[in-house]
Simulated scan of single mutants.
Amino acid sequence: MTWPKAITFDCYGTLIDWEGEIQMIFKEILERNGVKNVDVVALQRHWENIQFDYIQNQYMPYKEVLRNTLPMAFNYFGYPFTEEDSRYFAESMGEWRPFPDTIDALLEIKKYTKIALLTNTDDSIIEETVSRIER
């Protein structure tokens, strides 16, 4: 078999557990603010719709998108949050964990060809993510 010169992957949602990590952070924020037993899947999906609409407007760094859209989603459901919670969410993305099989799969592919990650997020976020998944 002839391998291609490189293989590209979308990073968030393909290699990094985008939905699971957002849900975990939302649950953590809610519990810190005294709210339990919330459907974090519904909250995450609502937030995702909000942020998708939000990024259709003027460009802004993705950390700013994260910081500005958390309040919109939480307010919709009447969930409490603080300014620090919004900052925490915005700063967390580079630390989101990969799916369990991601690192081993990338290491195997790397034996045969180059790997390139694609993302429409900030350079600083992808750099932090890459540093966490590289070995």
Rank of each mutant, 00 (worst) to 15 (best):
P61K: 08
E19K: 09
K36C: 01
C11Q: 14
R45E: 10
V40Y: 13
T14W: 12
S86Y: 00
W47Y: 05
V40A: 09
F89S: 01
K63M: 13
F99W: 13
N75Q: 10
V65K: 10
R45G: 01
E21I: 06
E21R: 07
Y54I: 11
T69H: 11
D53C: 09
H46T: 15
E21Q: 06
D101Q: 13
A90V: 05
M93W: 06
I103L: 02
N68P: 02
G78M: 07
W96Y: 00
G34K: 15
D104W: 01
D123N: 15
E91H: 01
F9Q: 05
E83C: 08
G78H: 10
K36R: 00
Q44F: 04
S92D: 08
T119S: 15
G13Y: 02
R45S: 08
G13Q: 09
E83S: 11
T14I: 09
H46A: 14
N68T: 08
K110A: 14
Y88R: 09
P61L: 05
T121K: 15
T129L: 13
N57K: 14
F52R: 13
E84R: 05
F89Y: 06
N120I: 13
S92F: 09
I25N: 07
C11M: 15
K27I: 08
T69M: 06
R97P: 07
T119G: 15
P71A: 03
D17N: 15
D101A: 12
R97E: 09
I126S: 03
E128F: 06
E84I: 00
F81K: 07
G94K: 01
D104C: 01
D123H: 15
Y59C: 08
F52W: 12
L117D: 04
R87Y: 01
Y59I: 05
E91M: 04
Q51M: 13
M72G: 00
D39I: 14
E128Y: 04
E108S: 11
K27L: 13
L15S: 10
T119L: 10
D104Q: 04
M93T: 09
D123T: 15
Q23H: 09
F77I: 06
I109K: 10
R67T: 08
E83N: 11
A42W: 05
I50M: 05
I55N: 11
I22D: 05
I16V: 09
Y76W: 07
H46Y: 15
S86C: 11
H46W: 14
T14L: 05
M72S: 00
R67G: 03
M60W: 08
W96C: 03
S86D: 00
G94I: 03
Y112C: 07
T113C: 12
R87C: 00
T129R: 04
Y88G: 01
G13L: 05
L118V: 10
L66R: 04
N33M: 14
K111C: 05
S92C: 11
D101N: 14
K110F: 04
E64Y: 01
M60C: 15
I22G: 09
I125M: 02
E95K: 14
E108R: 11
N68I: 08
V38N: 07
F77L: 06
D17G: 12
G20Y: 03
E128H: 13
G13C: 01
L30E: 06
L107Q: 11
F52Y: 13
D85L: 07
N75A: 10
E127H: 09
C11F: 13
E83H: 09
D39A: 12
H46I: 12
Q56A: 10
K63F: 03
